[in-house]
Simulated scan of single mutants.
Amino acid sequence: MTLMLHAGATEVAYDDLRAVATPPRTASHVPVAHHEIVELMRYSLGFYGHEIIEEHHAVTEDGARYFGLLSLRSPDGEYTDTLGLRNSHDKKFPIGIAFGSRVFVCDNLAFQADHVIRRKHTANAKRELPGLVAEVVEPLNTERQEQAERFLRYRETVLPDEVADHVILSLYRSGVINLQRVPDVMEQWETPAHDWGDKTLWRLFNAATFSLTGRVAENPAVTTVLHRVIDGVCERTV
């Protein structure tokens, strides 16, 4: 989970969100309480059988902006799915909900994931919010199944060292890793810091993500390119 706070927001407990005042509505702007969005998401996730195992919430000092992350227990326990949330009372950005295996929420207003939906604070927003949440929550089981199948293909794809070298070079050429990180990926491929099994695409995928610790926060788009390169290897070895 990546909730970056370096532009004035502070992490708070969920219960503290109830104490954040919601400004009155105007003709063109109808604020929704931060805690109401979280509660609706919690309820919807539970209704569809998803278990939240970790959550983080943050608000700016004036309470005008909210940022949050909810981590869900994955079907196989090897990774987590994440939902990102954000809301504003100062018209800076709309209600936002993001989903993916890599979600990036920052108080500098960066908001990225595999899937992102947004809803303006209009008179109908609160009434339509449950439908907005359903747009994300209902497809989650399908999304998670597809992710599990993708990772299974990674585990089943055995890589000779020479092929691994070629993939690492492809990651460099694609801009996923820079020249300085190439040795880091190779080291994790040969002597991994964690048990990622035998020399398969799964081990190489984890070697790459391990070496990218920190950079994903700087540029979340690298995860999309990483998957594109790894998936390409799977297609060529089928």
Rank of each mutant, 00 (worst) to 15 (best):
A27Q: 14
E36N: 02
I52V: 11
L40M: 11
Y66Q: 09
L69E: 02
A58K: 12
R73I: 04
G68S: 05
E36F: 05
A27T: 13
E36L: 13
F47V: 12
E61A: 09
L70H: 14
I52M: 08
T60I: 04
Y66D: 13
A58P: 12
G77N: 03
A64E: 09
E39G: 02
H35W: 03
D62L: 11
T80M: 15
R65A: 13
Y79H: 14
F67E: 05
H50M: 02
R65I: 09
H57C: 03
G63E: 03
S74F: 02
R42D: 09
E55C: 00
H29I: 06
G68L: 06
L69C: 07
I37K: 01
A33E: 15
T60F: 05
Y43S: 06
A27G: 15
D81P: 02
A33V: 10
T26L: 01
H56F: 10
T60R: 13
Y48V: 12
T26R: 06
G46V: 15
Y79W: 07
Y66G: 10
S74W: 00
F47N: 05
E36D: 09
H57Y: 07
E54Y: 06
V32W: 05
L40V: 13
H50P: 07
R73Q: 04
S28A: 12
Y43P: 03
E61C: 04
T26F: 07
G77W: 02
T60K: 07
F67S: 08
V30S: 03
P75S: 00
V38M: 12
L72P: 05
H56P: 08
L70W: 08
G68R: 00
A33G: 07
V30M: 14
A64V: 00
G77A: 00
A64M: 13
H56I: 12
E78A: 02
T26I: 12
T82M: 04
L72F: 08
P75V: 00
S44F: 04
L45S: 10
L69F: 05
A33R: 11
D81W: 06
R42K: 10
E54P: 02
L40S: 14
D76Y: 09
S44M: 11
P31A: 07
E61H: 12
G46H: 15
E39R: 11
Y48T: 08
V59W: 10
E61W: 01
L40P: 02
D62P: 07
I52R: 14
H57I: 06
S44A: 08
Y79G: 08
D76I: 05
E54H: 15
S28T: 08
D76T: 11
G68F: 01
R65H: 13
G68Y: 02
